[in-house]
Design a protein around this nucleic acid. Sequence first.
DNA 1: CAGTGAGCGAGCTTCCGCTTGACTT
Length: 774
Amino acid sequence: MKNLLIVESPAKAKTIEGYLGKDFLVKSSYGHIRDLVKTDDAIDVNDNFKQKYEVPADKKAVVSELKKLAKEAETVWLASDEDREGEAISWHLYETLGLRDDKTKRIVFHEITKPAILKAIESPRGIDFNLVNAQQARRVLDRLVGFELSPVLWKKVKPSLSAGRVQSVAVRLIVEREREINRFKPEAAFKIVAVFHTGNLKESFKAELPQRFSEVEEAERFLAACAEATFMINSLETKPSKRNPAAPFTTSTLQQEASRKLGFSVARTMSVAQRLYEAGRITYMRTDSVNLSDTALQGAEQEIKSAYGEKYHKRRQYRTKSAGAQEAHEAIRPTYFDRHTIDGDNAEKRLYELIWKRSIASQMSEAEFEKTTAKIGISTRKEELVANGEIMRFDGFLKVYFESTDDDQEPNIDDNADNTLLPPLQQHQQVELRSMTATERFSRPPARYTEASLVKKLEELGIGRPSTYAPTISTIQNRGYAVKEDRDGKPRDYRVLELTDGRVSTSGKTEITGAEKSKLFPTDIGVVVNDFLVEHFKGIVDFNFTAKVEKEFDEIAQGMKEWTDMLHSFYGPFHTEVESTIKHADRATNERELGMDPETGKRVSVRIGRFGPMVQIGSADDEEKPRFASLRPGQMIETITFEEALELFKLPKKVGEFEDKEMTVAIGRFGPYIRHDNSFYSLPKGVDPHDVTTDSAIQIIKDKRQRDSEKIIRVFEENPEARIENGRWGPFIRFGKQNIKIPKGADVENIAYADVLKWAEADDKKPKKRGKKA
DNA sequence: CAGTGAGCGAGCTTCCGCTTGACTT
């Protein structure tokens, strides 16, 4: 074999092999092949941060194969990515495979196209050790931070916790956003919306007052004045406007759009994209670049011109906005633009179409609009109402794609005065008022993060990389620092003043506010850890810490700074801080005292207990044992009120007997329920668990039994505990507490009791599924 | 789907970034 070329990704290797002739064998390193040993002695801080590396077990096979092939090859081409990590991979390969200078060449390319690769082969270079040193500084700093901070948390908070340059900032963002929301006091103001017509009722249109009234009396006076007024078009202005398409996808923008448009978690987006990439449908999905190769630009142009026509095409090159982008790859795009859709499962199809549309749109002409603004004078007031109309003159890129935004939560009522068509109007024309409303609206707190909007924020801060966004989001949830949840909203009253037929009437309405879907909430442990880190390691969890060290990594990469110098000046003060925190800091807690129990006169306090957040009445020193209750989902130590805490002790509650067995009402993980004879009966929606009486509890139990009995297909004579039932996915066998799947091909009508026993035994031997941690 | 909440202490936990399978459902 003449040439061995090594890239990072096996899918990439396959593609490149097709571009190069028989003289090249193309193989993959599967990312990094070496890492710091997992133990605490990986870095010798007293010997210039000397590192101990090892080939992890799952990389041994790859390394030995590459080693063998490298020995046989005349020339080894190291073609890992052109960024810090890629350069380090080349260096680790060079060292680990025992390569020789005279038969090793380092090449780089930013796109997987034939011309780019051939060109790269014509201009090989050596390994850039400045870049390698920058990566070592990054790697060592992250290890030092993570492996010194985490043990501090084990001592001062609780074992197994973790902290790091990236994850701890992610948690901080969530905690601080939650506090902003808790502190937020909504301000009410009245928004005026009018409907006019031109005299012809069919030609009606909406207009809005730009300013709002904070007092109801002001709004009332305004409406009353309008009742007496005549209205005239004071000015009419028509302006052309344009909208440009968004840049093609990067990892972060793909995660955001897939979250908004398809409802995917960031992890789901990445795994679906990985499948598309491996199937050769899209380019590499972990990228921070918005750049498209010439091949791609040509492909898009050809497809747009043939599918939509010449005037829809406009060649565009985008520039990256995010700091710290390393741009080792292209933007995420389809490999073949003429494939509008692909085969595959539903998720694959939908994600592919999103990528196809976004990429195609990025090379299309702008959409053109004509925006008309009419200002309407009021004879009895000096304010003007404004009506906006918009006509699309040319759809351009909107033919295939429009980008959604994050702020579509809780849309204001009547908020769509924009983007509508206005009837033909003229200056000084009189218009007739049809109706006018003043609606009480409230200012909104900042939005909680979704997984994707948190990724966006991290990217803006330059924290994390395309390959780590999804894992980071998972880590902070797995460690119990944050949870992704839905929360019900609360009703809120608002007032509406209405002017019709010259009279102002007031009515009260109710809306639901604060409902959340799939948002990130901090947990109590997340709050404690965050506050501890902010107090003792302000520098590390500072939002600019990464940006600051990245700047130094860049200087190292340019050969302007010694990587060990940088680490020395960081590690000295950091380590001192770690030592003194271990020695002097108090154990972290967020215990709060809420007051005195009116019944017993004992202290009521909240804190994190062995099994999670809890309320305690009384103390361990008391003669009488203290009482405990766990907090409910959605409740937090920081925000729970005295009343809510006492409420937790009212349940579980005995509500009488039925069939000689006690009935108990409690709230569990899935909501309120009645427990009776070791069975659970959920309360119907809307029933307050405190209001359940003996009679209503019996009724709920009977109802549930009735519903269950309707599901029973057959009870086995041999054993009334064994029966066939209709479940959610069809019939199954209930055998005492065991639920057994009916094997494929079995004749449901003629199952014998012997079959049941056989299947039950087989089912018992199957490994039990791992229970999720609560 | 409960309630549980002491203390002792061996041995363990943990970072970020680059890549996929091997798993289970």
